[in-house]
Amino acid sequence: MAIADTGSTDRQLAAGARRPNRLFKNLNSKIAAIPMIFVAMVVFLGGTCWTIFYSFTKSGLLPNTNFVGLDQYERLWSSRKWMVSIENLGIYGFFSLIGTLVIGFTLAALLDRKIRGEGAFRTIFLYPFALSFIVTGLVWQWILNPELGLQNVVREWGWTSFTFDPLNNPDIVMFGLLIAGLWQGTGLIMCIMLAGLRGIDEDIWKAARVDGIGTVKTYVRIIIPMMRPVFVTSLVLIGSGIVKLYDLVVAQTSGGPGISSEVPAKYVMTAMFGGQNLGQGFAASTMMLLMVGIILIPWAYLEFGGKKRG
């Protein structure tokens, strides 16, 4: 102890070197980080807390602090439109998840077979991803037009009883959206899967060949289990994309026919900006946050829970 004390007096006497203030150390980098800190803390965290907080109030045209407990949530879950929205999201989400993974992986595996024209195929599969959901929705609205679109063409080809009219049929309208959604989004997953496949050691394929394992079996038994992280990433991307589903519905069906293609994001927008019913909007968006949490928390736990990452 005594030695340490002498050391520090020594240090105070030492000329030339002044310990810089902790706060001002790295000052430039702290200043440069202010936008990030503002966005993370005020916009993202602050905004989220604000919305959750006000979802327990009777806010109507303007937010107010007239607390009503869980009333907004009770109203939400007894609303038919919300129930339809949730059901639609379930249908769309289930088929979109399966469809995107299967199509994305199959296309990636086909492109990975050292084929000619890989670049051209990839360009074709991916270009829809560059387009907005509005453009996607409007194109498919036109293609699925019952009088002048696909249905009409097939009938003219001679199959006169052919019926494919999803945008006017409440029972299958979600599949109309699904066709457009898959068209827009599978290219991205294909690209990620392809990158994953390219990351697999060539020697694995050689070993499988030497062992006499067939191509399909190698994919199913060896390659897919090795690509677990890629599948998890894809799952998270598809999942958070599904919850955000909004623009496509607005453009392609406007929620119709009737309310048969409503989705939660659209419910929120209508309540907040169309219905002067802010409380409902806040409650519904909090429910959306909860859904994302249900998808993400297990993933985050699996990814980061076991091991600490620097």
Binding site: D10, G16, A17
Partner: peptide, 15 residues
């Protein structure tokens, strides 16, 4: 964390 570094007779610990 603690201690000093001197170069050419000057304390440069925080330089």
């Amino acid at each position: 964390t603690d201690g000093q570094i001197w170069i050419k007779g000057k304390n440069v610990t925080w330089a």
